[in-house]
Amino acid sequence: MDNMVASNNTLTAYDKGPGRITAGPSGRKPRRRLSRRNIIVYGTLIVVALYYLLPLYVMIMTSLKGMPEIRVGNIFAPPLEITFEPWVKAWAEACTGLNCDGLSRGFWNSVRITIPSTIISIAVASVNGYALANWRFKGAELFFTILIVGAFIPYQVMIYPIVIVLREMGVYGTLTGLVIVHTIFGMPILTLLFRNYFAGLPEELFKAARVDGAGFWTIYFKIMLPMSLPIFVVAMILQVTGIWNDFLFGVVFTRPEYYPMTVQLNNIVNSVQGVKEYNVNMAATILTGAVPLVVYFVSGRLFVRGIAAGAVKG
């Protein structure tokens, strides 16, 4: 009987819902927009963002001015007369040494270096990582340790031995040689990346595939690969930006006609003959940096979408 009364009370309480609210705090807690906390947080962020964006602003403005306007000296002022002349010159006419065909040659060299290096290094490293994570073969730990230690040896130590090795292979000074070097130097960090990612996938999935009769390559292509889009995008960002921005290997291991864009940029900007064409230099620099920038914007979004789509979850 007591129970009956209790449940009746609850029912009526629900019925009367709206009228029961009394004076005092109720509902969502109000927050002030201009609180001290918000001012500090957003203030700091805005200052830092400006600090990073200011150089880019100056570069773009300068690259759109003609030389007479630059000589006036106000680097922050927007151009009075917009001209795309410096961009055209940087791309197609600027001289490095004897060649006067601008950055375009370096751009295509860089493309021919970056694309194969990225594809080959990611393909090999992902298989490495998969084998190390899922097929624990004899000596796997030792192999992995050696690979990781390799990542900590300074590049400078290895430059001359690599020159000799490439010479003996007959690919010194060619794009092929540089692609081989980039592929090898990307191996430790990429293998680590892929191994850790594959090790994080549920082990039972791998076991289920083995019971289903799938072998090494079938599991890799049919099970692991489709689940690993995010890590492939991460690896691609790392490789494309790393290889595109490389200067040292490009200048050491190739001949002038194969110089990548970064080396050519340096040669244009640092040329000592004639007047310093600041507008051309700025345009050339932006052009060189454009590729990594685009990669970040495009694939960064893809990356986030990959995770959000639950591609990782089993």
Binding site: E204, L205, K207, V211, D212, G213, M227, A311, G314
Partner: peptide, 30 residues
């Protein structure tokens, strides 16, 4: 022998379904 040659089927705690395949594909994969 390899697992596939033993004449066994196995069910796992975490289901271990292939996430990118439909149910039908999951069943027919093996």
């Amino acid at each position: 022998e390899e697992p596939k040659d033993r004449g066994i089927g196995m069910v796992f705690q975490s289901y271990a379904l292939y996430p990118q395949m439909t149910v039908e594909k999951n069943l027919s994969f093996g």
